[in-house]
């Protein structure tokens, strides 16, 4: 019985394994191989050298990398601060209203990210919704809020809001009310309950939410292009340029690999620290 179960399990895993090998692992392997090719070649039939990796520092690509990681980090921290109170209310205070908020947030995902960001461009640009109205009504004119680093971070916060909110709600709802009441009963103030009970017990949700927003934010392109107007060049932008205008596939591949290593190790570290089974509601 157990052997046939195992066989069925193996057979049912075959299709998805094949698809993943072909669609996920194979391209990654190609990228990995291209990254060690000499610059500006279009086949893999060359003697490997690691010159493309050296370019990261010599030509200042590391700055793009830092901008990407920095904006993603800022967005993640801001999102945590913004989402925590709302997530707490959704998990512990609101009842039917939680469903309303959930639906409202999810509905925004039905519209493509680029279109939503264009909406913000039209809102924030000079002559846009805000500046245009202010100029028309009170005669106050300014340069619009676009094309700077804060607006890029704002874009990241806006786009990745659900990716922080829902894991946090899930994490906070895992904190037993009894544990909070017991802590209060044993003399803990609200602040102490937050640090000693809420935060550690909802850590899985916090880690998942932070990883999602950071990983997605670090690879994000549209916010810096549309809202930031390339006030800074993020790493995803550099990679795209290397593959397209730059016609330098090895460079693009090398930058991709560096980004993948940084984000991948972060994700592996984070996930290894939390009990994923618990947040999925599964018992071991």
């Amino acid at each position: 019985m157990e052997r046939s179960d195992r066989k069925i399990g193996f057979l049912s895993a075959v299709p998805i394994t094949v698809i993943l090998m072909l669609s996920f692992t194979a391209p990654l392997l190609v990228v990995l191989l291209f990254s060690v090719m000499p610059p500006k070649v279009f086949t893999l039939a060359h003697v490997p050298d690691f010159s493309s990796y050296g370019v990261l520092f010599s030509q200042g690509y590391y700055r793009s990398l830092l901008w990407s990681l920095g904006t993603a980090l800022a967005a993640t921290v801001l999102l945590f601060l913004i989402c925590w109170p709302l997530a707490f209310a959704m998990a512990k205070v609101f009842k039917g209203f939680t469903l309303f908020i959930t639906v409202a947030v999810v509905i925004t995902l039905f519209v493509s990210e680029n279109i939503r960001l264009f909406g913000w461009v039209l809102t924030l640009m000079k002559g846009g919704l805000i500046e245009g109205h202010l100029r028309a009504w009170v005669g106050w004119s300014f340069e619009g809020a676009l094309y700077n680093v804060p607006v890029i971070i704002f874009g990241l916060v806006y786009v990745y809001f659900p990716f922080m909110l829902f894991p946090l709600v899930q994490g906070i709802s895992m904190v037993p009310d009894d544990a909070r009441q017991a802590a209060a009963d044993l003399g803990a103030t609200r602040r102490q309950i937050f640090w000693e009970v809420d935060l550690p017990l909802s850590a899985p949700g916090i880690v998942i939410g932070s990883l999602l927003t950071f990983v997605l934010g670090a690879g994000a392109l549209a916010e810096s292009k549309l809202l930031g107007g390339q006030a800074v060049i993020v790493i995803a932008d550099e990679i795209e340029t290397a593959f397209t205008y730059g016609q330098n596939w090895p460079l693009g591949s090398a930058l991709s690999i560096i980004l993948i290593i940084i984000i991948g190790s972060l994700a592996v570290f984070g996930v290894s620290r939390v009990d994923l089974d618990k947040i999925m509601g599964r018992r071991r």
């Binding site: 037993p176 009894d178 544990a179 009441q181 017991a182 802590a183 009963d185 044993l186 000693e196 009970v197 550690p200 017990l201 850590a203």
Partner: peptide, 13 residues
């Protein structure tokens, strides 16, 4: 004053 809860409410972490 202080209470021992029905669930005990020990801190699992």
């Amino acid at each position: 004053t202080c209470m021992v809860f029905q669930s005990l409410a020990l801190f699992p972490h």
